[in-house]
Design a protein around this nucleic acid. Structure first.
Lengths: 100, 100
DNA sequence: CTAGGGGTACGATAGTTGTCGTACCTCAAG
DNA sequence: CTTGAGGTACGACAACTATCGTACCCCTAG
């Protein structure tokens, strides 16, 4: 199962800032950012204190903001930052926020 | 008439990002930022395509996010970026967003 | 003094968002 | 084959938000 991600050119800053204006989502993004390996990570490996459906919701918001890519591997789902693409579209934004 | 502004230490990133995740408000902030003079500007000098009450609302959101200071001068209202304070609390954020 | 521009406060409203529960799917392990 | 972990889709709901209109306030220009 595959998740469609938006073309970064079609993502607007509004959507991005809204997606990052949530503690849960920001935490996840920054956690991915700290993982300098850039490797995939299991969605289930994040400790989110919300229900399953809420988790799904947050992943979708991040996906639609162009921040992440998701891959469904039958059993679980794996997530990866679209770091290079995103940084090309919104240079420095992630690093700046990470530094705060 | 005076407007109370929050202590920057008590402003959280959530509130800031939410306040900037709106085109009208972001435009106003960036316009103030481009004005390198740092001088006050009349609130009425911004061309906001919304009603008076909506304008008031947006100014309040920015104020509560610690981004601006407002001074009521009887007749009109004047606004000023809290640039130094804000940048001390959230270093680089405004400039980064301005660059996008 | 009166008009009018600039502004706030309050109440209403439609749309968005974060959250959940339930139902259902898929695969791996027993 | 059955169970369970991980996950989606859908519908519900409360909270928040952007917007407006109305009523009202303050001052300056006539």
């Amino acid at each position: 199962m595959e998740f469609t991600v938006p073309d970064l050119a079609e993502v607007d800053l509004d959507r991005v800032l809204k997606s990052l204006a949530d503690p849960q989502r920001r935490r996840v993004v920054l956690e991915l950012l700290e993982d300098t390996s850039g490797a995939e990570r299991a969605c289930s490996s994040f400790d989110l204190p919300v229900s399953k459906s809420t988790r799904t919701h947050h992943w979708r918001v991040l996906r639609e903001a162009g921040l992440i890519h998701q891959r469904g591997a039958g059993n679980g789902t794996y997530v990866r930052l679209r770091l290079d693409e995103f940084d090309a579209r919104f240079p420095g934004l992630l690093r700046t926020i990470a530094r705060l």
